[in-house]
Nucleic acid binder design. Structure first.
Lengths: 240, 240
DNA sequence: TCACCGTTCCGTACGTTGTATCGGTTTTCC
DNA sequence: GGAAAACCGATACAACGTACGGAACGGTGA
């Protein structure tokens, strides 16, 4: 009953062998592709299995829980954050290069914000990123703890920025509408509230709120501006 | 069959009536209590219904989707972010008061980070918060768009900081272990990697990475420090 | 060559989630 | 008093993560 006969002549069948067609790498890669294309919510065990021509439970041979898969996905893409080649000598340029890279990577993989915002990134590549951030400041004559505080502050800014940036874009899980639809639905509501007179300062800024900076270049400049502010403050504090 | 008789004598039963025992306010309040106590994952439609002595589907009379409930929860707690009374005259003090309040609120409701990080906060109280942030800068002789950029940068920093801070704490959904257990599980792994020699800069900082600043006062000071850096940079740029 | 064993894969099943549908009851309004 | 609206609930469905047990296969020692 439950037993199935192999179909077709021998030589047409797979070369026998338990040579795994499922591997951790293939699973993670597929999951990343699905997340890139359809958001993190589309990454279900069943879905990834189907994508690989396998059944759901087969994945559990290679990962222990879904959490593991998410951690592996995050660490895999964390590798893209690493700046290749030499870092600039100037510490400001160096740390800027690193956080720019962070932003670019998250723009390529918007679902990544959900992961970095919900679990510490301490996989191998996450640590390499930390190491590289510290290396960017290696020329500064200050104790490691102080360096770490500087990196944390800059990273915090970058993370916050990218989160809000991603919030405006698509490809994010948890949302039923595209940004355009959302904006269309939102605008009348915003108009009404803002014209109530309760928001004198906010009213002139409806557009900024509803849709964010118009063109990508403006968003880039906003990011650089905030980064400059933070670095200026740090530089001033260090007496540089 | 499917119909059930009310138990007990009439006068012991609820006073009949369609006076709604379920209200939007009660639902949201209960959901917030559950989230505070057990994290956002514990907030399921069935759970909140049970908590209110109702059945799951009854909630849908008052909200349309679960997303709505989450938005309502977020906006409700966004009210706590609003600074009561007059804002300080000095713009730095004023905007600092606002973001401190943000941090405090999120510390009281850690699940809130998941919501602000995943949906724009444009409910009434979210907008009031935006209005208040702008009001904090009302004394500055710069155009509204510029003010908004400043607020965005400061907010971005604060958001990033609070996210990472919350990441270390408990009461967060998505994690199976307490911070202590997690740290215990993590430390051997970190030790091994860091002692591999690949992380010369990172190695001296294992503790910072594994557990973050030791005592709460240090975390406060870290937050203030980063905030000061950002505000110094802005002030310098404005020529103040 | 053959029995054994560990690994890999899968079929089935359980509990939980959000929510569509529909049916019944109570309240309100004309 | 009758119609309409509001409210609540029972049932059901699809999708989720995953526990459990068994089948297929490759490699190994006898």
């Amino acid at each position: 009953m439950g037993t199935e006969q192999a179909q077709g002549p021998v030589w047409a069948r797979e070369t026998a062998g338990r040579r795994p067609k499922l591997t951790r790498e293939a699973i993670v890669r597929t999951a990343i592709e699905v997340a890139d294309a359809e958001g993190l919510d589309a990454v279900s065990i069943r879905r990834i299995a189907t994508e690989l021509g396998a059944r759901a439970m087969s994945l559990y041979t290679h990962i222990e829980r879904k959490e593991d898969l998410l951690d592996l996905m995050a660490d895999e893409t964390n590798a893209e954050i690493l700046v290749e080649g030499e870092l600039p000598d100037d510490w400001r340029e160096a740390i800027s290069a690193v956080v720019r890279r962070t932003r670019e990577t998250i723009r390529r993989h918007p679902w990544l914000v959900d992961l970095v915002a919900s679990r510490p990134q301490v996989g191998p590549n996450g640590l390499r990123h930390g190491e590289q951030s510290l290396a960017a400041l290696s020329g500064l004559p200050i104790p490691p703890e102080q360096k770490w505080r500087i990196i944390a502050a800059v990273d915090d800014y970058a993370l916050g920025f990218v989160i809000r940036e991603t919030l405006r874009g698509e490809g994010r899980s948890g949302y039923t509408w595209t940004p355009q639809e959302r904006e269309a639905l939102m605008r009348p509501y915003l108009r009404e509230l803002l014209e109530s007179g309760e928001f004198p300062n906010l009213a002139p800024l409806v557009n900024e709120i509803a849709s964010g900076p118009a063109d990508p270049a403006a968003a880039d400049e906003d990011f650089e501006q905030g980064l400059r502010w933070m670095l200026d403050g740090i530089a001033g504090d260090l007496g540089l």
